[in-house]
């Protein structure tokens, strides 16, 4: 897996292909802030950034979604009214998932009622690792039911699963339980998203799609802050799942600083000069 994943990093993507790839990356970003220190002002700033990535660069795509804690969903909804930028909310006692199912479902319900278009849930890694797969499955299914029309992303937190076999098993389990997306990580622990882990999950998605015909999305999150790495991910999606997944309906990046790096690359391509950190808005 590691070797196969490494080969995706050896493609040379230049010129027009790079330009299109970078714009695609921007359009797939879930612009994220999940800090204990988040304030309404921070959320407003993030939403403004989602709408206005860089006003001096014409015809930029906007990001796919903003990703916030449940208590900021209604604010984000107001800030992004009139755009088609989605609101994603983490729920189910993010990032640890250590609370009762009732509380988790209540949290999901509140987030959906407040206007979340997408719910990012975490699985109970402790239960999963102790072999209580039924519990994990039932929990995902219950959350899916509570989501209603909101799309459900299931965070496996692969950095805590120990090995790739577990990642594959958790991916299959999440998809069978009804996940619309499977997502690598919370971003709160290291390692977060890596190419080999994402490849395993993409292969699980491919096999599930062949078996059932249902398309499931993929979201690597955490640790992807360089445009070049993001392009490697796109290459991997293209070569594993094909072009049907190269759309922000089916593939997302969970990231906070990636957008700025992509913007800088786009500015470099347009002006010929490497821009400074001060040339793009703060995260």
């Amino acid at each position: 897996m590691a070797q196969r994943a490494k080969r995706f990093t050896e493609r040379s993507i230049k010129g027009e292909a790079k330009r299109q790839g970078l714009r695609m990356v921007l359009n797939m970003i879930d612009l994220t802030t999940l800090e204990g220190s988040d304030t309404p002002g921070k959320i407003q700033q993030l939403c403004h950034k989602a709408r206005h990535l860089h006003d001096n660069v014409p015809d930029l795509p906007h990001v796919a979604a903003v990703c916030v804690y449940p208590n900021f969903v209604s604010l984000a909804k107001r800030e992004l009214a009139g755009t088609d930028i989605k609101i994603a909310s983490v729920a189910t006692a993010f990032p640890s998932g250590q609370t009762s199912l009732e509380l988790k479902l209540t949290e999901v319900e509140q987030a959906v009622d407040a206007g979340a278009d997408e719910i990012d849930m975490v699985i109970s890694r402790g239960r999963f690792l102790s072999g209580d797969f039924d519990y994990v499955f039932d929990e995902i299914a219950a959350v899916k039911q509570t989501c209603g029309t909101a799309r459900l992303k299931v965070i496996l937190e692969t950095g805590e699963l120990g090995n790739l076999d577990n990642v594959r098993h958790a991916s299959d389990l999440a998809m069978e339980a009804g996940a619309d997306f499977i997502k690598t990580s919370t971003g709160k622990i290291k390692p977060a998203a890596t190419l080999p882990v994402t490849l395993v999950m993409l292969l699980a998605i491919r096999d599930y799609h062949r078996r059932t015909g249902r398309q499931v999305g993929m979201k690597p999150a955490g640790g992807i802050s360089q445009s070049k790495l993001a392009l490697h991910y796109l290459v991997m999606v293209q070569e594993t799942l094909g072009p049907a997944w190269l759309d922000n309906q089916w593939f997302r990046f969970g990231a906070s600083s990636l957008a700025n790096d992509v913007l800088k690359q786009i500015i470099k391509q347009q002006t010929g000069y490497y821009p400074a950190a001060d040339d793009v808005s703060r995260d």
């Binding site: 010929g272 000069y273 490497y274 821009p275 400074a276 950190a277 040339d279």
Partner: peptide, 8 residues
């Protein structure tokens, strides 16, 4: 040309 133009 590259270091002269590099804004950082």
């Amino acid at each position: 040309a590259h270091f002269a133009g590099h804004r950082e």
